[in-house]
Structures are given as C-alpha cells and as structure tokens.
C-alpha cells in the first residue's frame, strides 16, 4: 500500500498525497486524539501534520517506513501543541470537561462503556512518555523498532516504559473500578 502511494505521488504529487491522507487519516487521528482531549484540537493537529508532511515530502528518502515517518511527525506536532496549550489543556482536565462523556451510542453496554472511559482516564494519568509508548504499542500495535524510530528512544527503554505504563494503568483502574 505504501509503495503504491509513493509510486502515485512520484507521478502526480497531489493524487498521491490524497491517497496518503485517505490511508492514514484514521490511524493518525486516533494517535493524536489519544493524547488530546477534544476532537477540534485533534483535527487541528492532524491538519498541521499533513501540511508538514506535504512541505517536507521531498525529504522522505524511504530510509524508514512511510508509516513510521508519519507517526513521528504526528507525534511531534501533538507534543508541540500540548506544550503550546499546556495551561488550557490542564484546566480542561481539571474541570472534567474532557470529552470522555462523548461515548458512542453504539457502545456494546453501559458497563463496558464505563470501563473504556476509565481506561482512557488511566492512560491520561501516565507520564507523557509512558502514555505515548503505551498508545503506540497497545492501540497502534507497532513493534518496538518502529516506536524506537518514532520516539528516538532505545528499545530497552521503551520496554521498560511499556511495563510501567501497564502497571500504572492497572493500579489506577483497580483503585477506581470497584466504584463502578
């Protein structure tokens, strides 16, 4: 799929880029959204990500996977956004206005819906690095070699981060789950 996109982009950049957006918009959106509370913020960052990809398209030499390169840009854009809006994002969290209440209507049942929301809350409590590693590994199912490139971190450190992330999530959920 990625090779196909690159081939198309080589002949017709605009068409190739459209294919790239269609292929990666959902995984990148969710990668960003897991780090940010609201849809609008996630959309802004997603747009900035694709804009940056477009601007630097010629610098992609195929030395890494296309997906890894895209995730790296999306991650950097997300972290930049968080840094820039740290105060606002914190106050949103504190006020409990984050969109955890925005649960899909088609969610299987109330109990699982609450568990899904609780899991997201637990992930939000993690230190930034643990949160990123956990999301990339658990949700995006990327291997450690790819995550290592995305986060510029050694594989061993990532494994440690993932281990502690799971432990922290477990602790948080066990503490709060009994109240459900």
């Amino acid at each position: 799929m990625d090779e196909e996109i690159l081939k198309i982009a080589h002949v017709d950049k605009e068409r190739g880029f459209r294919c790239l957006i269609e292929r990666y918009q959902e995984p990148l959106y969710w990668h960003i959204r897991r780090m940010l509370p609201g849809h609008d913020d996630a959309e802004d960052v997603l747009q900035e990500t694709f804009l940056r990809v477009y601007r630097h398209w010629n610098s992609f030499k195929g030395e890494s996977k296309l997906s890894t390169w895209l995730y790296k840009i999306a991650t950097n854009e997300t972290l930049r956004f968080i840094e820039k809006n740290r105060q606002t994002l914190l106050s949103l969290d504190e006020m409990g206005r984050e969109s955890l209440a925005d649960v899909p209507d088609e969610s299987p049942d109330d109990d699982n819906r609450e568990r899904l929301a609780l899991l997201q809350k637990a992930i939000r409590q993690l230190p930034e690095k643990q949160r990123l590693v956990f999301n990339l590994r658990y949700y995006d199912e990327l291997d450690y070699a790819d995550i290592s490139e995305i986060l510029d971190t050694q594989v061993e450190t990532l494994k440690t981060n993932f281990f502690y992330a799971k432990e922290n999530i477990k602790k948080y959920i066990q503490k709060h789950y009994e109240r459900l």
Partner: peptide
Amino acid sequence: MKDFDLIDIGKQMPYRVPE
C-alpha cells in the same frame, strides 16, 4: 472488587467523531 483485565476492556475508543 471486580476483576480487571486489559484484554476484556478492548481497544475501542470511547470518543465520538462528528458524522
């Protein structure tokens, strides 16, 4: 206390995206 397992919860995201 209820049992908790990450696998039981699943990977579904509890966020809504505009239609």
